[in-house]
Design a protein around this nucleic acid. Structure first.
Lengths: 212, 212, 212, 212
DNA sequence: CAATAATCGAGACGGTACGTCACGTCTTCTT
DNA sequence: AAGAAGACGTGACGTACCGTCTCGATTATTG
């Protein structure tokens, strides 16, 4: 979480669900949601650099201080907004073939990258270049959860004999996703389903068990 | 060039060296260099977002207007500064093996990415996410020149039979460099020479001519 | 009273001590005193303009709402605080001579003006310039009570033949105190006991019965 | 001057009127005047406490920073505005009688105190209670210049035998003006021409040469 | 003794103004 | 005409208080 964690500290459990409450007026859930929604919507319109907290607060009908009370940076706000926006289906199918499992998931990914949410992802990656917390939030909330699923998918491929037993899974996944991220960020070439397919062929081809 | 081109117009040749000069004080080369140097140095310190023209002008002992006179955007300035900083050794050797040609060049690249200049590259890529001209400058001045050399290297590999004849060179290069850019920007894993070697093995392995 | 008077209404007497009580938790006298003390102390430190309710509440270990519940304005709070701070001995002696009666009281006054409480008085007079209630509170709680005593003192002087029978008492008192207030507020000259003496000589000299 | 004195430093004379100019764009006289005018006008409307720099800048069609560039405080701004507003006729006539000389000038003073400019004066005196520079500016720009004229007027009275030779002029002037300031600030009584006349009678009566 | 009611502390809320900073433009004199 | 210098109008920054509001807890009277 990049959000400031006052509540988390104050609301510590004391055994048997005997949860204490922090004193004072509790945080407004309505404000929180309204802010995140506004942030996301304005980010999609104007990009990260042109997004101002002032604008977010105004759009959310919220005092500027309320934003600053809970998020230390524009970056943290965006990261939370991104995380809270339910990341739609990006899981890995189990079709019986690594190639098609990976290919299908990667096609979903480029669909997201090319859509409205793509702007948000690129804004986060951009912001993350000068903000360790932001890039770390991206890793923890977006990258790792998916990668854990990917490991399982690859493992199935190993079991089935589609991949080498000693394959370096992280290297393999970087080789599959790296080119997508590169094209997404440098925009020197198209992100098409065909690209994904060829990419899978090439890389998974290099990961096949060696012929004896 | 992203720099404004008044001078280029004014200083056009008219045949045999009969070069006319624009009237008035000529542009100060010292100022130009000082500005670019300051821009680069400050970019390394603070990243793209925190870099201000005000700061650059002050650091370069130059009037703010002088900066604005010649560069329309912060992005253009950075792009010029980046380009002007002689990009040291990044060419492709000809060792007789694609794998080692690529591997050597890629090792040089990660050395740059991990050094001082890495901050500048990441700043440019970050800034480029909200500035089309900046990312385009990166492509034109950094990516394409090197890629042209890379095409030749790969071509040699094809001739030698190390790579498939019908290999998609762009796909192959993205598969080689994408993982590096991904690790460079997301920082989820190390950029080591060993990583580069294994990466080359994996990807070039998938690009070998198919056994009959 | 500038304090809100809920309690006064609720606690009205109904004949011989048959005092009804409002239901609910009664007002905390400790909080009231703590607030007034903090207000006074902070007023002495920072002046009226820089004094904040927030600061008073924090200093008094009291909720902000508790302050607002009982005092509608900063001005009202200060006025109450000032009034509650027992104004020490400032009464008029009866020495048998107007000159020395007045002189002694005026010396006490400048002693107060030059001390800690002087800051508070000047803060109130300053605040009063943009707050009718505050300046009116100063008059009602500080000026008039003392002036009533002063009238008596002057009356004795008239009876004794030290002052003209038809003397305008308000004019005379303003002539005696005005110069003190002026020096107190404009600070262009010293407020010394000698000044007080000479002032009394001059003004009371002009108030003597006219020689036939 | 409470205005920041960059210009004064930079524009130092170098002998024979060889006055150097500061580099850079010179300060905008139009902005200066517009700001002072707005400040004065808004001060008259809302009083010192309710006056905001933001409002002044907006009313003057000027950037907030331009105000802050030249005046460190709201107080300094007001003081300058007050000083720049040509203080109308407040000099001392020479009628051949101290009483009428003083009385006439004092009547002019109360006219000012009761008018629009009175709000400004009271705002300055109020602000001066927590700002040494402001009250000092009032003394230097308003009080002393007039007092110097007043000394001359009193001196004439001494020569003519209307006043004691050894009269303390500062005491006498405080006794004449103090009551006016007191009524002006505490507002416990009217500031009428009759009051002024009676005040002069009383105080100057006490300053007459002693009968032998 | 339970219900009711007003207080208390704490602190979040929507606002407004603060004083600062950088923007990109401009106006001056100097080179 | 370009240079350094630096003031200009603009607008966002992040902070501080405003006066109001919701909390749970406390302390009284009333039924």
């Amino acid at each position: 979480m990049l959000m400031r964690q006052k509540a988390a500290i104050k609301t510590g459990d004391h055994g048997k669900g005997d949860r204490t409450r922090a004193p004072g007026r509790p945080r407004s859930e309505a404000a929180r949601i309204s802010i995140l929604r506004s942030a996301l919507s304005l980010l999609g319109k104007n990009g990260f650099a042109d997004l101002t907290i002032e604008e977010v607060a105004a759009d959310a009908n919220v005092g500027k201080a309320t934003v600053y009370r809970w998020w230390p940076h524009k970056a943290a706000l965006i990261a939370d907004a991104f995380a809270s926006s339910a990341t739609r289906r990006l899981h890995f199918p189990d079709t019986g073939s690594v190639r098609s499992d990976m290919s299908q998931q990667m096609r979903q990914l480029i669909k997201i990258f090319r859509g409205r949410r793509g702007r948000i992802v690129s804004a986060i990656l951009a912001g993350g270049q000068s903000d360790k917390e932001l890039i770390s939030a991206f890793r923890n909330r977006f990258l790792w959860p998916r990668r854990r699923e990917a490991y399982a998918t690859l493992q199935r491929g190993i079991r089935r004999g589609e991949l080498r037993k000693d394959i370096d899974k992280d290297l393999l996944l970087d080789s599959l996703y790296g080119p997508i991220y590169m094209r997404f960020l440098i925009r020197h070439d198209k992100l098409t389903p065909e690209f994904v397919d060829h990419l899978c062929s090439l890389v998974l081809g290099g990961a096949r068990p060696r012929p004896k």
